[in-house]
Amino acid sequence: MLRVDFLVIGKTKEKWIQTGIDKYLKRLQPYAKLTYKELADISVDKRKDSKIIQAVSPRDLLILLDEKGLEFTSVDGAKWLEKKAHHCSGKIIFVVGSAYGFTEEEYSRADFTLSLSKMTFTHEMIRVFFLEQLYRMFSIQKGTPYHHV
Results as ranks from 00 to 15, higher is better:
Pro145Glu: 11
Phe102Lys: 05
Phe102Gln: 11
Lys51Arg: 15
Lys15Cys: 05
Asp66Pro: 01
Arg136Pro: 03
Gln141Asp: 02
Val56Trp: 05
Ile52Asp: 06
Thr12Asn: 11
Cys88Phe: 02
Pro145Ser: 15
Arg109Glu: 13
Ser108His: 12
Leu25Val: 02
Glu71Trp: 02
Glu105Phe: 10
Ser57Lys: 12
Val8Leu: 13
Leu25Asn: 07
Ile21Asp: 09
Ala85Arg: 03
Ser57His: 00
Ile93Pro: 12
Arg127Leu: 11
Ala78Pro: 11
His147Gly: 14
Leu28Tyr: 12
Arg59Glu: 12
Tyr146Cys: 11
Asp41Phe: 03
His87Gln: 14
Gln141Asn: 06
Phe102Ser: 10
Glu14Gln: 00
Gly101Thr: 06
Phe138Trp: 08
Glu124His: 00
Lys142Thr: 02
Ile63Thr: 06
Ala78His: 06
Leu7Asp: 06
Lys83Tyr: 09
Thr73His: 01
Leu34Ser: 05
Glu14Ala: 04
Lys51Ala: 15
Arg109Cys: 09
Asp45Phe: 12
Lys68Val: 02
Asp111Ser: 15
Val56Ser: 13
Leu61Tyr: 07
His87Ser: 15
Arg27Cys: 04
Ala32Leu: 01
Lys23Pro: 08
Thr144Leu: 01
Arg109Thr: 06
Lys46Gln: 12
Ala40Arg: 00
Asp66His: 02
Thr103Asp: 15
Thr12Trp: 05
Leu134Phe: 00
His147Ser: 05
Phe130Cys: 11
Glu14Trp: 01
Glu132Asp: 02
Lys13Trp: 08
Gln18His: 05
Ala55Tyr: 05
Phe94Asn: 13
Thr12Ile: 13
Ile140Ala: 01
Glu104Met: 07
Asp49Glu: 08
Ala99His: 08
Tyr31His: 10
Lys15Gln: 10
Asp5Trp: 09
Glu105Asn: 12
Phe129Cys: 08
Met137Glu: 10
Gly101Ser: 05
Ile140Phe: 00
Gln133Gly: 08
Glu14Leu: 07
Lys26Ala: 08
Val4Tyr: 01
Thr19Ala: 07
Glu71Ala: 03
Val96Asn: 08
Met125His: 00
Ser108Tyr: 03
Thr103Phe: 10
Ile53Glu: 12
Ile9Lys: 03
Gly69Leu: 09
Asp111Val: 00
Ile53Ser: 05
Lys142His: 05
Lys15Phe: 01
Glu132Tyr: 02
Ile93Ala: 15
Lys13Asp: 04
Ala32Phe: 02
Lys46Arg: 09
Glu105Cys: 08
Val95His: 12
Lys79Pro: 02
